[in-house]
Amino acid sequence: MTMLSLTINGRAVGPLDVRPDLSMNDFLRERLGMTGTKFGCGAAQCLSCAVIVDLDDGTSVTKPTCVAPALDFNKQKIRTVEGHAVNGVLTPLQLSFVEHFAFQCGYCTPGFLNEGQVLLERLEREKVAREDLERTIMEALDGHICRCSGYVKYHQAVRDVILADPSRFLTA
């Protein structure tokens, strides 16, 4: 057993004793009861288990939690689906997902939400041209499997958040 401490959605968690071969997904779901992060394939194929990792340089990435030991996240700051809305106020992306009817069963939604959010934050730093937008969204979301929706509305939902505030995300 080894001690693990990290920050989840702005709150310090740990130190907790964990098995070196306990996956981050099981740590979140079995130890912490944070089941907003899903388990889909256990092999980084569907990415329904992806969370956001906020790096020290101010950038963020998503990481599937099913293929990484929990200890890899020691001292890291992560965000999960439970942490997007603040005091019940949905983020623009959450709102867009709901209003677009982006998902159906919703099991892949946490992964798409985290991936879309990281994309939005990246585009705020590194804007893209309008004509590259659909391709950029595809590159971001294509790792995520959705079996219900056919993906159309997920892509529209992300795109429409960007197009609603073009100067923030797109080059002039």
Partner: peptide, 21 residues
């Protein structure tokens, strides 16, 4: 990898055998 899906998003510093990763 591309900007959104980097190798290191999934591939950690060492094999993680419980997931065959």
């Amino acid at each position: 990898g591309l900007a959104s899906l980097r190798c290191s998003n999934c591939h950690g510093g060492a094999n993680f055998d419980p997931a065959g990763m």
